[in-house]
Design a protein around this nucleic acid. Structure first.
Lengths: 109, 109
DNA sequence: ACAGATACTTTGCAATACAAAGTACTAAAA
DNA sequence: TTTTAGTACTTTGTATTGCAAAGTATCTGT
């Protein structure tokens, strides 16, 4: 019976990960490994197979852009940055997140 | 292009709804309409087609039980209540929720 | 009997997170 | 030069979820 614990957290992450990505990229450009590190530092574990498709989705929606940059330590990296549209979406998600936190608060009462 | 607004909220609800149900039922027994009312009062809109399958899932997992009760205003109602296992799961989810709130806080910094 | 209200159920769909396997590029070792 | 290890990115298949919409069942009042 593998950790229902992790399963609970995994389910809760749904729909919030997009928000996390925008939060991170709103502060600075980053490539996938940077993002995974930052998420890990915030206790929000994510694996490559989750992150890459997510970045591509957000890029296709016009929320992100990217540029290639050479690396001295391996293949070139895709550095992602947030667009104006992405910032608008982030504002929307900030509001949605706040509302949800308040909803749970209300229910806990 | 229909309200991306609602879509954002809908995605964020994923995985949190189960938590909400357990919160509500940890305080008192309730049948579906009660639960929907309470969710609506907390600004967390949910429709029947979402709630019923969810209650059935949680019952099958042993987190909930139910009993039929006659009504003076229509067909009998299924009153759901939380089980011991459900309370354990709720505690797990409380922790997971707290962690996620902290994670987002960290990322916002 | 029938109509309307209430309550519960089922079906089909789109979106998500993940594991796992695969592709591509670079630098250092053999 | 060829091979190996490391890094980075991509793709595929699966299970779970939330939802709209349509369907079934029960009760009450006319």
């Amino acid at each position: 019976m593998e950790s229902t614990n992790e399963n609970v957290r995994s389910q809760m992450r749904k729909g919030v990960l997009e928000y996390c990505i925008l939060c991170i990229l709103s502060k600075r450009e980053a490539y996938a490994s940077n993002i995974i590190e930052e998420l890990k530092a915030a206790n929000m574990i994510v694996v490559e197979g989750t992150l890459y498709p997510l970045l591509i989705r957000q890029k296709n929606q016009g929320l992100l852009t990217y540029r290639w940059e050479e690396s001295t330590q391996g293949p070139p990296r895709k550095y992602y940055g947030i667009t104006e549209k992405g910032r608008a979406q982030l504002a929307e998600m900030d509001a949605a997140w706040q509302e949800m936190v308040e909803s749970i608060d209300t229910l806990k009462r």
